[in-house]
Simulated scan of single mutants.
Amino acid sequence: MPVSRLLMDRELSQALEGVPMTPNGAFDLTDIPATRAAFRAQAESTAASEPDDPSVTTEEHRIGRADGPDVTVRLLRPATAPGPLPVMLWFHGGGQVLGFAAQDDAWLKPLCSQLGCAVAVVDYRLAPETPAPGAAEDGFTAYQWLVREAEELGLDGTRIGIAGQSGGGGIAAATVLLVRDRGGAAPVFQSLTYPMLDDRNLTASSHEITDIGIWDRSTNILAWQAVLGDRTGTDDVSPYSAPSRAQDFSALPPTFIAVGELDCFRDEDLDYAARLRAHGVPVELHLYPGAYHAFDLFAPESRLAATFQQTWFSYLARRFQDTSTP
């Protein structure tokens, strides 16, 4: 039996047995259009089977810009919470090649209700149609819009955080770098959940995780090739395309990073946390034993997923309530 299976949390291992697998794993990036369609169909079917939450409202906003196509932002907010509300700018997962803004509604809406905050989900452009750093540019446009229009939207422009998951975590980190380097108002935090940060695939974990089926090494290589094309692994990659390429981590906001022990992103995420801390950035880091990539989504009823959610919600609540301390 592969070592990764022996080390895997029992509940997560049981959940994995129910995940449909192609010969190329859960996400077959040898045929991105077909996998996108299947991914969307599954997400929409799941959403249709669950009752809507009337306590959270949904709006869609289109943000125009002179140097690119409009960016759509899906804004979720508690219907009765008094404003101005803190807001989290969110980037969905999908390896930067899959997914869509509404895919996370089922658990972002409870987050809005529990934390009394708004969530602005960026419907960023996907690769390979839009190579990096196009998605981060979309994120920067959305962040500028939130800061500029906060008062009109009933939001608190002094309490905006930037967050993302998996591929979206990488885009969130790149957006934060763009905000700093272009002199924008600093977000109160960045929250990176098992983020996709490094196109080079040189770490130990990127070589170890090959047989779980949930975003293994082969899938990640295909994703980065779609995101960067011939630039993958070369010197011609900016931090706005792969944040691990950054050299200067100073003046970045307090950071939350969570990753599983059996995630191919483990070591690049741990390294990112260490480099942030070395530059004086407050970091809250969580490594989940026996957990594979996106464990909280594939095994949402597991104890590890519950632990992660409680820890993450607590961090967000603290950052929104008191932005004066790390």
Rank of each mutant, 00 (worst) to 15 (best):
M1P: 13
P2Q: 12
S4I: 13
R5S: 06
A15P: 11
G18Y: 01
L29V: 05
T30M: 07
A34M: 10
A38V: 03
R40P: 00
Q42D: 10
A43K: 15
S45F: 06
E50R: 15
T57H: 14
T58E: 04
I63Q: 05
G64E: 12
A66C: 04
D67P: 14
D67E: 10
G68I: 09
P69F: 02
T72M: 11
T72F: 01
P78R: 07
A81N: 08
L85F: 11
W90I: 02
Q96H: 10
A101H: 11
A102V: 13
D104P: 11
L108W: 03
L115H: 05
C117Y: 07
A118R: 02
V121N: 04
V122E: 01
Y124Q: 12
Y124W: 09
A127H: 02
A132Y: 00
A136D: 08
D138F: 00
Q144P: 01
G154N: 10
T158V: 09
T158P: 00
R159Q: 11
I160T: 03
G161H: 01
I162H: 01
A163C: 08
G168I: 12
G170H: 06
A173F: 05
V179N: 01
D181K: 04
V188Q: 07
F189I: 02
S191I: 06
S191M: 12
S191P: 01
T193E: 04
Y194D: 10
M196C: 14
L197S: 06
R200C: 05
N201W: 09
N201E: 05
T203A: 11
I209Q: 02
R217M: 02
A223Y: 01
A226K: 03
L228Y: 01
T232D: 00
D235C: 05
D235W: 02
Y240D: 05
P243E: 10
D248G: 10
F249T: 02
C264M: 13
E268P: 04
E268I: 13
D269E: 15
Y272E: 15
A278F: 15
G280D: 12
Y292W: 10
H293Q: 06
H293A: 00
A294V: 12
F298Y: 14
A299S: 14
S302M: 09
A305Q: 06
Q309T: 14
T311H: 14
T311M: 12
S314W: 11
D322A: 12
D322Q: 08
T325W: 08
P326N: 11
